[in-house]
Design a protein around this nucleic acid. Structure first.
Lengths: 252, 252
DNA sequence: GCAGATAAGCGTATGGCATACGCAGATTTG
DNA sequence: CAAATCTGCGTATGCCATACGCTTATCTGC
């Protein structure tokens, strides 16, 4: 059930279920999964700020300090929540599938996950992927790029590109959606108001590129998913160009 | 000195200096800029968590609650800090300069700014760019793409692509640098340790793409700036391809 | 030059928060 | 059955943002 006791950081071992249940002492009344699930449920229902240790504890019917028998710090709990809520990645590259649809699906999966659980965007990234689902996502992302001739660091940079863009995009749209919900209006109205504010503020100054943008006015009724696809396709185009270069002159 | 009283949100008007100094009442003993500067100084010296209202106040020799005469909430202060600390964008596209070097410089500017003030990455993004320097950055980013044939939403998506990637990258490298500083080791050692942990954790499971990556082993002594450039060049390649498409078949 | 209006600084208080510490009781091992 | 060990958790500490209202300084209109 669990691997050898490696010199892993406590929180990582915890996330991977590598901490042996002690034999002495009373049985635990909860499991780590329950704690994490309670945290996720609160975050999803009431937003990340509602997730306090005492709130999670009361949700589970235990005292606040009991949680610290399961989790070293609150931040570790948040990391676990994100890892669990992200869930498993979308299906990996099929045997006869090209790298591009696979990486595209991977990117879409990123936004989908972030959109489904928008509170996740407020949990600060704590470092490179190390928790179980994060590593699974990493695996599938890299798998999409196997055999493309890209070097190791290039494959990593490529998936960072996609996931970073997905995160930016999901964050922006979620911020707008929340602003809309808060003011009882629609995302379109929030977007419109933003452009109006921008117009007002830049009117007296030298902002030719912004004014040109506003003059086109086409962005008011844009399909946001189209805009996201545009950026994703540009990334994939760039990666494709690199792969072709590598194919033409393979690195030794 | 200030424009007409538009129906702007309080914090935006504040950031743009559009709040008329009241004529009645005692003179203020501070300026908003001083408050923001004090916040930045603390964040830079001791990290973002050290920035509390009372800490900023004591730095300025005033009482905590005095700050609220200058700033509606702490979050508004953080936004102002970020806008100020980002500073002005790098030089805009020159008259005879192509879009690509200009956008490249703009992207580099993003990472440079974030690297110079690493605490900024921990301030949650509160929405689309609306504060003065943010808007200036927006202007220069868009200016780099003027006359390329890209549509308004495409120009926006392109600069989101670059800035999002810059932020991801700066965040990752800063996280690693801070972990190194905390443990008294070098970023290279932190990176190595990460790969070792990943190897340990994925050893028992089916992670072929990760194992392949680890087998190449080339990432241990990589120049991180090269990796950043790789991703940026891929984005620019993708944008270039799009621009060529548009040039071949102009949109009506 | 004075009265009323207004704003500044800020003392105090409220209600939150993460978490350190140690104890009482449960459970298991020898 | 005794020693060891772990659980749940009560209590306490020291933070935090910020609401409220008072005092005092300053300006405007008369």
């Amino acid at each position: 059930m669990n691997g050898p006791d490696v010199e892993l950081p406590e929180n990582v071992a915890l996330a991977w279920g590598l901490r042996d249940r002690p034999s002495r002492g009373p049985k635990r009344s909860l499991s780590l999964d329950q704690v994490v699930a309670a945290g996720i449920q609160i975050a999803q229902a009431e937003g990340l700020p509602a997730v306090s240790m005492s709130r999670v504890a009361s949700e589970l019917g235990v005292a606040t300090m009991s949680l610290y028998r399961y989790v070293p710090t609150k931040h570790d709990l948040l990391d676990l929540m994100v890892d669990t809520a992200f869930g498993p990645p979308p299906p990996p590259r099929g045997v006869d599938e090209g790298w591009r649809p696979a990486l595209s699906r991977w990117g879409e999966g990123n936004v989908t996950a972030l959109r489904r659980q928008p509170w996740m965007r407020h949990v600060p990234i704590s470092g490179p992927p190390i928790n179980p689902n994060q590593v699974r996502w990493l695996e599938y992302g890299l798998a999409a790029l196997r055999g493309t001739g890209l070097r190791a660091s290039e494959r990593i940079a490529a998936i960072m590109l996609v996931s970073g863009y997905a995160r930016s995009w999901a964050t922006l749209t979620a911020d707008i959606a929340e602003a809309a919900a808060r003011t009882g209006s629609t995302p379109e109205e929030v977007g419109l108001r933003y452009w109006q504010h921008l117009a007002t503020l830049t009117a007296p100054g030298p902002y030719p590129a912004i004014h040109e943008l506003l003059a086109e006015g086409e962005q008011y009724d844009d399909d946001v998913d189209l805009e996201w696809r545009f950026g994703l396709d540009r990334i994939l185009d760039g990666v494709a160009a690199m792969i072709e270069t590598r194919a033409a002159a393979p690195s030794g």
